[in-house]
């Protein structure tokens, strides 16, 4: 019985994952860019929207297809694009963060197996209050205009 309640407590704790920041956040058009042959890494892109009154931060991302998942951005320094890890992606209250090629993105590093077009990659985003959100990102071929729809407010 004790064990059972422990299990229940554990379940409740993980259920707690969908309270908090994750509740006020929606994710639009998540996708993973199909990695070209021999490329060991690729990016995931999406628009993260915060309907709440408090700023939230995405502090971590996870996925089962790559060994490492990181949050990255690009700095354009005189035509040289420099990719750098970032500790968090800020999503302002009533605002959004646009993750797109050449900018902020979730990096899937050291892919465990080649992916193919149409596959789905479950991504788990963790917010600064510990809550999490799972999104299913479709694998799409690289195109010239792969940026998710940008909504100007």
């Amino acid at each position: 019985m004790k064990k059972l309640s422990l299990l229940a407590a554990g379940l409740i704790a993980s259920a707690g994952a969908f309270a908090g920041a994750a509740d006020q956040v929606t994710v639009q058009d998540p996708y993973v860019r199909l990695a070209p042959p021999n490329a060991p890494a690729t990016g995931a892109f999406m628009v993260i929207r915060n309907a709440g009154d408090k700023d939230v931060k995405v502090v971590k991302a996870d996925n089962p297809v790559s060994r490492v998942t990181e949050l990255h951005t690009h700095l354009n320094e005189g035509g040289v694009m420099k990719m750098r890890p970032v500790p968090a992606i800020d999503v302002k209250a009533k605002g959004e963060a646009v993750l797109k090629p050449g900018g902020l993105h979730v990096m899937l590093i050291d892919l465990k197996a080649p992916m193919k077009e149409g596959d789905t990659v479950p991504l788990t985003l963790t917010f600064d209050d510990g809550s999490t959100k799972k999104v299913d990102a479709k694998v799409v071929k690289p195109t010239a205009a792969p940026a998710p729809m940008e909504h100007k407010h």
Binding site: P40, G43, P101, P146
Partner: peptide, 16 residues
């Protein structure tokens, strides 16, 4: 080829 984002973005646009 290890280029995670910039090369595929550029090459896809040029290829199109």
């Amino acid at each position: 080829t290890y280029c995670p984002d910039i090369c595929p973005t550029s090459l896809a646009a040029t290829a199109e």
